Simulated scan of single mutants.
Amino acid sequence: MNQTPLKDEVLILGGGVAGCAASIALARKGRSVTLIEREPTPRHKVCGEFLSGEALEDLHALGIDLASLGAAPIDYVRLAAARRAAEAPLPFPAASLTRKALDTALIGEAVAAGVRVERGRSVQALGRATGNLWQAMLDDGTTYEAPTVFLATGKHDLRGHARPKDPQRWVAFKMYFRLTPAQAAELARASELMLYPGGYGGIQPVEGGIANLCCVVQQRYFARVGNRWENFLAKMQQDCPHLAMRLAGAEPLLAKPISVTHIPYGYIRRATEKGLYCIGDQAAVIPSFTGDGISIALHTARCAAAAYLAAEPAPLFQAKLRSGLLAQMRLAEFAADGLNNALARAVLPFALRVWPGVMRVTAKLTRVAQSAAIPLHAVVS
């Protein structure tokens, strides 16, 4: 056990999209940064893996070459329910890439930028130390101290810094499939959103010719199928034959689905403490329906890095970030809730007819405005 605290200028807790993006931006500006990530190697995570136009711009500024990673282009979005589907072209360029591949690339870029990356290290607690420092206690008893901390632990909360409980008790699953050649061709360049009682799901191609099925359901609906993935998958296909068509003859590629529970959709952090910048899901959790999770992570990292470099206090940054995201978050919640209720399903034939126009408007309105902060290329260059 290290008895002497290790000190650095900035300590970043969490090596996902937000944590890595912030670490790269700060290191390229000459800051001394340590990033602590609990997983020893990048892994698959519950994520729709959709990269919007804003995400593509931010990743390019960070030096991530998505084409070389095999990212699948996404040009269309489809809404599917029962046996019908409606398609709309996306009003911006988009792509899809597994989180394992993206996180690997981001960690590599962070190391290249000079970030000290500590992997396989779990932070047990974060609190105040003496001398106006923050102190992070790791699972082996080692402590790290820094005047500034970026909290980027994603969906996992640290003791003493928990977000509100999820009233809907959402359960999310992710499974990769190898579709039949005919179904893979039908899905190519499209992200499909499917509705069913108690939740919604999406399926889209990722690199390597495989498809990502990511879905969420309220716990009470999951309990009705015995809290079992195989029963839930069968029920989704029964409620949405379009999905059953996609998965006919498909080969599941994971021994079991990746899952996560208690996702506080709609959460936006109201306040923080001096020297503590909260980013990614620790700042805001947008409904999965919008496909904006990765974009939000990158946006919050960009804003936080710019704020820190401009000596903007963390409480002021957090308040400004909340104000900038509030309208988009509320609209996303409204859209997700509106699509998944009994009335929406009752008027589904009409909804499918107007879907293309609604989708174009919703996609534009729920995007994170790049003008809301300093562009990332100005932060990292």
Score class of each variant (00 low, 15 high):
P356S: 06
A248M: 03
G53Q: 10
C214E: 04
V260T: 15
A185S: 15
H299N: 07
E37N: 06
K235Q: 15
V149P: 02
V380Q: 00
V354H: 02
V354Y: 10
K45Q: 13
L179F: 05
R322E: 11
T143L: 08
V17I: 15
L376T: 12
R99C: 04
Q218E: 15
W355R: 11
T41L: 12
L365F: 12
A125C: 07
Q219R: 15
A182R: 14
K29T: 06
K155T: 11
M1I: 12
A244S: 13
I279Q: 01
D58L: 08
Q3D: 13
R302S: 00
G131W: 10
S23Q: 02
G131F: 10
Q237T: 07
P241K: 06
I36S: 10
T290A: 14
I286Q: 11
D166R: 01
D139C: 10
A72I: 04
R83K: 13
I12A: 01
Y176Q: 03
R159T: 13
R345C: 07
A101I: 05
Q3N: 11
G324D: 11
R159L: 13
L233H: 06
A80V: 11
D65C: 11
R224L: 14
Q238W: 11
T362C: 10
A25Q: 10
A351E: 09
M329L: 14
